[in-house]
Amino acid sequence: MPVGTKLGFSVFLNTAMAFGFKIILNWEAAAVGAQWHNLFETITIEENLTLGHIMLMMIADTVIYMIITLYLEKIMPGSYGRVYKWYFPLMPSFWFPRKKRYIEGDVTVVNQSDRFEPEIGCGKAGIKLINLKKNFSGKTAVDGVSLNMFRNQITVLLGHNGAGKTTTISMITGLISPTSGTAIVNDVDILENMEDVRKSFGFCPQHNILFSELTVREHIIFYSRLKGLDKKEIEEEIDKYLKILEFEDKRNALAKHCQVA
C-alpha cells in the first residue's frame, strides 16, 4: 500500500493507532525498539511508513477533530446556545464581528399590545425587545414581543407557567436563539455581538449556581473571567463584593461550608 494511502487512512485515529502499534512491535521484534533516532526510519525495505509519520498524523487528527467539534457546537449547540448557519465560517461577520453600537433613536420600539402597561418612558431604554419570537416544534412560546426596559427602573414580566417568561429571558441572555426578531442590550444587538452583551449585565436564575468545592474567592474569580475582566479588575471585584456582603472572613471558605442565616 502506498505511503500516501496509509497517511490518508490515518485521518481516522483508530487506523493511525493501529499503524503505530504495528511499527512499534516491529521495532521491538528487531530487538532495537522505537527510539528518537529512528523515529523517521523504516524498519524494513518493504515498510514505507515510519512512526514519525504516524505521530505527525495524530497531531493533525487532533487539530482536525477539534475544528469539527467547534464547528458542530456552533450549528448544533443542543438545548442551550445560539444556533449558527451551517455556512457561518464563510461569513466575514463571524471573523470580524461588528462593533456597531446603536444610539438613542436608531431603533424605536412601539408596543401596541394591551398585555403591557403603558410605558412611562423616562430615561434611556437599557433593553429593547423587537418583535421577539420563539417557536418550539411548531408551538409558539413567545409571540412577537416588543418592549422597552428602561434604566433605573424595575420591569416585571408576569404570567402563568408556560407563558414564555423564562424563554424571553433565555433569548436575551443568549441561552437560546430567537426564531425571529432580536433584542438590543445597552445598544448592542444580541444577534451581532452576544459576547459584548454578556459583559454588560448579570443574570440570576431560579436556583443558585454554586460549586461546592470552590471557595468564595474562587467563585468571584470564575464569574469575573466569564465577564472578561482582567486580573487587576478581578482582584478589585473580590475586595468589593466581599466587603459589600460582609464575607471577608469567608474569603477562602468552601461554598458548601457557607450558610446564610
Rank of each mutant, 00 (worst) to 15 (best):
M1A: 15
P2E: 15
K6S: 09
F9G: 02
T15W: 00
A18C: 08
N26E: 15
A29P: 00
A31G: 10
A34E: 03
A34D: 04
W36A: 09
N38Q: 09
L39S: 04
F40E: 07
E41N: 14
N48A: 11
M55H: 04
M58P: 03
A60P: 00
I64T: 10
I68H: 07
S79N: 14
R82I: 08
W86R: 02
W86G: 00
L90W: 12
M91K: 13
P92H: 10
F94P: 10
P97A: 13
R98G: 10
K99A: 10
I103A: 13
I103N: 11
I103K: 11
E104D: 15
E104G: 04
Q112V: 11
R115I: 00
E117L: 11
E119G: 01
C122G: 08
G126D: 09
L129I: 08
K134Y: 04
K134S: 05
N135W: 04
S137P: 00
A141I: 01
N152Y: 03
I154R: 01
T155W: 03
T155P: 05
L158S: 06
M171C: 12
L175S: 07
I176W: 01
T179K: 00
N193E: 07
N193M: 05
M194L: 15
F203R: 07
C204S: 08
F211E: 07
S224H: 06
L226C: 14
L226E: 10
K231P: 00
E235W: 01
E235A: 11
E237D: 13
K240L: 12
I244H: 03
E246A: 01
R251G: 07
L254N: 03
K256H: 03
C258M: 10
A261K: 05
